[in-house]
């Protein structure tokens, strides 16, 4: 899952770096070790970035067609494009489903598992529950999407519909994924929460291990209840992890693709578009690859800006702490 990929925050700077005493070649020799890495990153990452940014200033039908200079037309068109604006509005909901809800729930679950289940009911149970919460994280998202698609089938054959029918006594036949924007977006969000929840749980539980158990025992002797301990000890101690989790999941949210592709294909009526799905769709089915390149380039810029803001904020917080 891409959310677990980018924890590059905080680099350690040791006072006394290891160094192999130099003989002859000096530091230049180390550059040789970059050769394969740099060549690959140049071709696979930087060439596409340059090519798409350039293309975003042209109109191009693809294939052998001529490119036509477009200036800023594509970029200007983005701001008038309802689907584009809609896709970024949906990103706010995706952030709620992939960042805010999992982080908050993850905090509560991690604290519960560590502080109550682990300490009072045994570590075996808490490790087992942690593994269960983490399970959806390792499933391919596409497979998880197909699973949810089956549960949410329209008409009376849908599992979820059958549940509701049993509970209410009436036949429920809601078209969850194709009926309306509300139910379709909610379904996508629930899938995202289901997938994401295990990531903060595991990270936060590992963080809690750092906390001195004496602190909790002292708090217990002072008759602090669970919630007071959570607020006064747990939360401040694992702030760095909360930061890392929200940074990595926010970036994953901005790039989200598979849940929408599998569950709704952007429907009903293009209402559940997210930016990456829109760009992908325009590249494949659109008539102007220049416009598709403008969409993709704009997402790239947004991701970079968000990453830089996050890291700045964190560095400032670190300096305050120091």
């Amino acid at each position: 899952m891409s959310s677990t990929k980018v924890p590059w925050v905080r680099s350690t700077r040791p006072a006394e770096p290891a160094r192999i005493p130099q003989r002859g070649a000096g530091k230049l020799g180390y550059w040789l070790y970059f050769i394969p890495g740099i060549i690959l990153v140049g071709i696979i990452i930087f060439w596409p970035i340059v090519r798409n940014f350039r293309l975003s200033f042209y109109h191009w039908r693809g294939g052998r067609a001529e490119e036509q200079w477009a200036g800023l037309e594509n970029w200007a068109a983005l701001f008038q494009d309802e689907e584009y604006i809609q896709s970024f509005q949906n990103i706010i909901l995706v952030i709620i489903a992939m960042v805010i809800i999992p982080t908050v729930l993850g905090l509560i679950i991690a604290a519960l598992l560590f502080d109550v289940v682990g300490r009072r009911f045994g570590n075996k149970l808490s490790s087992f529950l942690r593994a269960t919460y983490y399970l959806p994280q390792i499933l391919p998202i596409a497979v998880a999407g197909v699973l949810f698609g089956w549960l949410l089938k329209p008409d009376s054959s849908g599992v979820f519909n059958q549940f509701l029918s049993t509970i209410t006594g009436d036949a429920v036949e809601v078209n969850w994924l194709g009926g309306s924007y509300g139910t379709a977006m909610a379904s996508v969000m629930i899938l995202m929460i289901w997938i994401q929840i295990g990531y903060p749980v595991v990270i936060f539980m590992a963080a809690l291990q750092r906390v001195d158990p004496e602190l909790y025992e002292a708090a217990e002797l002072d008759n602090a209840n669970w919630f007071q301990r959570f607020r006064a000890i747990t939360l401040p101690m694992i702030r760095p992890e909360v930061f890392v989790v929200s940074l990595t999941t926010t970036i994953a949210a901005l790039k989200v693709f598979a849940p929408v592709f599998i569950l709704t294909q952007g429907g009903p009526n293009k209402s559940t578009y997210v930016p990456s799905f829109y760009a992908y769709n325009e590249f494949i089915n659109g008539t102007d690859k220049g416009y598709a390149a403008a969409i993709a380039s704009s997402i790239t810029i947004v991701v970079f800006v968000v990453a830089v803001i996050f890291i700045r904020v964190q560095n400032r917080a670190e300096r305050k702490d120091a």
Binding site: K5, V6, W8, S11, G37, V41, I44, I45, F46, W47, P48, I49, R51, N52, I251, L254, K255, F257, P275, S276, A279, Y280, F283, K289, A292, A293, I295, A296, S297, I299, T300, V303, F304, A307
Partner: peptide, 19 residues
């Protein structure tokens, strides 16, 4: 390090058509 990390930040839809 930042140059290499770009590979992790770039959205895949930016890569797929050129690649």
């Amino acid at each position: 390090v930042l140059v290499f990390l770009m590979a992790n930040l770039v959205p895949q839809e930016m890569l797929f058509d050129p690649l």
